[in-house]
């Protein structure tokens, strides 16, 4: 695993405040970090920690209140959305709701060509689609003419990844991509993310609440709590030698196989 030190994405003092009526909720509070080329990082936090809000801001689906996001040296405010999304893509938690249920898989995958700058005819598209499906270990004949509800969660999530193989972005934001998938099939999905990095040099950011998963897949981990990143570092360091009390507590709360689980801690 070669890691280059070229920064792919830099997040500087990113803040998001949601206003509803008179109430102001600071969902993301002055968050800064960077993601390097070919790097896999995880943003770990419990529900309500603001991690999904960050994901949406990085994906340019949500405007930040202040702070900046720099992609390949350019503020994303100055990058055309279409060009940005050619380079930065996302995968969401629930593969079923990520698909328009009225379209068959083939149509959904053909739609993803829209973001590319080159235009393809349907025949060329289908060739690429078939290749992409094969690289996620799906027999194209099994799925192309099917509707999302006719497929399993694991198949659907792999199709979402096939879409990434088509677009070939430089950065992928994966929001809880395995939380709806049985553990037994999870390994297959994780393997595909590895393959994305190996074959296309994609940087990947996992957004997850699963500390075990983050530890297993990431080079670096950022721990988020109440809108702030409380601890960041290499996976080994953050999980095995946490510094921050919140991180320590969080890791203690997770049951493992070989350590006793401290059940009677007061909080």
């Amino acid at each position: 695993m070669k890691l280059s030190n070229n920064t792919r994405l830099e997040v500087r003092e990113l803040t998001k405040i949601f206003v509803s009526g008179r109430r102001k909720i600071t969902a993301v509070d002055q968050v800064s970090f960077e993601i390097h080329e070919r790097e896999i990082v995880s943003l770990v936090g419990q529900s309500g920690s603001g991690k999904t809000t960050i994901a949406h801001m990085i994906l340019n689906l949500l405007k930040s209140t202040s702070g900046s996001i720099i992609f390949d040296g350019k503020d994303i405010k100055d990058i055309k959305k279409k060009i940005y999304w050619r380079n930065v893509q996302g995968i969401f938690q629930d593969p079923f709701s990520s698909f328009n249920q009225f379209f068959v898989v083939k149509k959904v995958l053909r739609d993803s060509f829209k973001i590319l700058d080159k235009s393809f005819n349907n025949e060329e598209k289908d060739k690429i689609i078939i290749k992409a499906l094969e690289s996620v270990n799906i027999d194209p004949g099994d799925v192309l003419e099917k509707y999302p509800f006719e497929l399993s969660g694991g198949q659907m999530q792999r199709i979402m990844i096939a879409r990434i193989f088509i677009i070939k972005p430089k950065l992928l934001i994966a929001d809880e991509p395995t939380s709806m998938i049985d553990s037994i099939l999870r390994a297959n999905i994780l393997k595909l993310f590895e393959k994305l990095r190996e074959k296309q040099g994609t940087s990947i950011m996992f957004i997850t609440h699963d500390i075990g998963l983050a530890y297993y897949v990431s080079d670096r981990i950022f721990i988020m709590h109440r809108g702030k990143i409380v601890e960041a570092g290499s996976a080994e360091q953050v999980i095995m030698n946490p510094n921050h009390t919140y991180t320590k507590g969080l890791i203690e709360d997770v049951p493992t196989l070989h350590k006793e689980w401290i059940l009677t801690k007061r909080s």
């Binding site: 994906l59 999304w85 629930d94 709701s97 990520s98 328009n100 993803s112 973001i115």
Partner: peptide, 9 residues
């Protein structure tokens, strides 16, 4: 999410 996906397309 499928609307977000469409935007990303």
């Amino acid at each position: 999410e499928h609307v977000n996906m469409a935007k990303l397309n």
